[in-house]
Each structure stands twice: as C-alpha cells, then as structure tokens.
C-alpha cells in the first residue's frame, strides 16, 4: 500500500515534470535548440511591408541575431495572428474574448504593429511598448466632413470628431484596434461597415467612395498621407494615445525577458531610433516624449 502511494506520487511528479517541460517547450531554450525563431507578422503599413522588410521585421531579425538563432517569417492575418501564437481558436466581440478551440502553434513572437488592447492582454504577454499610436478618422479630401480644430484636450477633440459622424458611413476592421465598437462610433449615429481586406487598402477604399471615412492608426495614416497627397484628410482623433508592443505566449517568460534586455540595449545604443527614423520619421515629431525627446530641435 505504501509502495503504491509512493508510485502514484512519483507518477504525479513525473507528470508535472512532463507538463512543466511542455510548458517550457516553446520558450527560449527550445527556440535556441531548434535554431530558429518564428516571427508572426501581418503585412501592414511599414511594420511588415510585404517586401521582406519593415520596422517589425528588422526588429525581430536583430533579436534573432541577438539570441544567435536563424530568423523565419511566418505570414498570418489579423484574425489568426493570436491563435497562431497561443494555439487556441478565439471569438472576439468588442472588448470581450472567448476561447472556442485548439489550433496549431505557428510562431514564437508577434511583432506587426500590434496595439495593446485589453482583450488581447488576456491571451498574450506583451513586451514593453515598442511604438506609439492613436486612432484617427480619415476621409476623402472632398468629403463633407471637415477637420476639427484641436482644443489641447484629447477628450474634447475625440467628442468633436464623434459628433460629426451622424449619418456617415465608416469602415472598420473587427477584432483589431480599428474595431469601431471600441470607440462608440455606432452610438453616435455612424453607419459602420466591416472591412475584411488588407488594412493597407482602407485608405484607397475611402478614396474610391466605398465609405465616407475610415479608422486608421497613426503610423498607417502617416503612410497614407504620403502615398495619397491631396486625396485624403485627417478629421481628428477617435482615441487617446495607445501603444504597440510585441506579444509572447504567457508561458514564454524567458523569451520575453531576453527580448526586454535586447530592447533596452538597442534603445541605448541608438539602433532603435535609427529603425524608427528609417520607417516612420514623421512619428518622432508627433510623439517626441515617447521616444525620449524633450524638444523638436533636439532630433
């Protein structure tokens, strides 16, 4: 009897040990053993350009070099980016999320201009903020919508934008930071239209008259302003300042910690700023405090 108990205990410990091992199966050690880190990315603005470069691509490539492994890009989309990391199917409604099944794990790190949202926090472990962002409302240049006059108070500015939306059609991308339900747009009388194509096509869709306006985050809006000068205009903000960060599985603590070290290093040695200047030079001027600049002239 005593022997049985010990055996059971040993089996239990063994099971726990096995379980623990499997928890750590996709953490840093395993990645080093495998010799490659898999980067989950969605072609989006200048984070993942689709041509093999981008802010996020360069960042993860540098991280791969830092931990001495090879780099592998795994293309995904907004609907599957988190399931591909955590191995679970999910259902998102507004700010609520539900796990509805299993799916294969395809990547080790998400770096793709992923905004930090509350529902995402429940599923992944975010790194320190990597990029500043905000949601702006964009319309065609000849639209009836006119840009707001900034008041200096972000809440007032957001309200001013919302009040203009009655009867207007607005594109949004569900289950992303561009989900209209996150900003109460419908409640202010706007007609929300779901857009399921590539986010890079939001601005062209508005230019071609698919809707009166669209939500865009600041990095994407800056890219669009440069690509389509004179065709679009920024009405104003729909959110307060947000941040983007890289995402890891909740059980990949070692990987995340190592990434934080890496991030700290490249911020100190100027590599990080060089990356920002390379892909988003304008954003330094919009959010200087995020990047540690006191005044404009210091850049």
């Amino acid at each position: 009897m005593y022997n049985r108990k010990i055996t059971k205990l040993m089996l239990l410990f063994f099971a726990i040990f096995l379980a623990a091992k499997s928890i750590y199966a996709f953490d840093l050690t395993d990645i080093k053993k495998r010799g490659v880190i898999r980067h989950l990315g969605v072609p989006y603005a200048n984070f993942v350009t689709g041509a093999g470069d981008g802010f996020s691509v360069d960042l993860v490539k540098l991280f791969a070099k830092y931990i001495n492994v090879k780099y592998e890009f795994v293309k995904t989309d907004w609907k599957h980016v988190i399931p591909d990391l955590i191995g679970k199917k999910i259902e998102v409604k507004g700010n609520q999320v539900k796990i509805i099944g299993d799916s294969p794990i395809k990547g080790d790190i998400i770096a793709t201009g992923l905004t930090v949202l509350d529902w995402r926090k429940k599923l992944v472990s975010y790194s320190s903020p990597v990029f500043p962002t905000q949601i702006w409302l964009i319309s065609r240049s000849d639209s009836k919508l006119t840009p707001i006059k900034p008041t200096g108070d972000i809440s007032k500015d957001i309200l001013a934008v919302l009040l203009k939306l009655r009867g207007m059609s607005v594109l949004n991308v569900p289950a992303t930071c561009l989900d209209a339900s996150l900003y109460g747009i419908k409640e202010y009388g706007a007609k929300v239209i779901d857009f399921n194509k590539n986010l890079n096509e939001l601005a062209p869709a508005v230019i071609n008259g698919k809707a009166d306006a669209t939500l865009l985050d600041v990095p994407d809006a800056l890219v669009a302003l440069e690509k389509f000068p004179g065709f679009i205009k920024v009405i104003g903000p729909l959110s307060k300042r947000q941040v983007m960060a890289c995402a890891f599985r909740k059980d990949a603590a070692e990987l995340k910690r190592t990434f934080e070290e890496f991030l700290d290093k490249i911020k100190k040695d100027g590599t990080y700023i060089k990356l920002v200047k390379k892909y988003y030079p304008a954003v330094l001027d919009y959010y200087p405090d995020f990047f540690g600049y006191g005044r404009k002239g210091d850049r």
């Binding site: 702006w136 840009p147 707001i148 006059k149 900034p150 809006a221 800056l222 302003l225 440069e226 205009k233 920024v234 009405i235 104003g236 903000p237 304008a282 001027d285 919009y286």
Partner: peptide
Amino acid sequence: MSMEYGLRA
C-alpha cells in the same frame, strides 16, 4: 488639417 492631426507630416 491641423498640425496635431496630420499636417505636421
């Protein structure tokens, strides 16, 4: 457009 929202770019 205002400097704060787009013009600065």
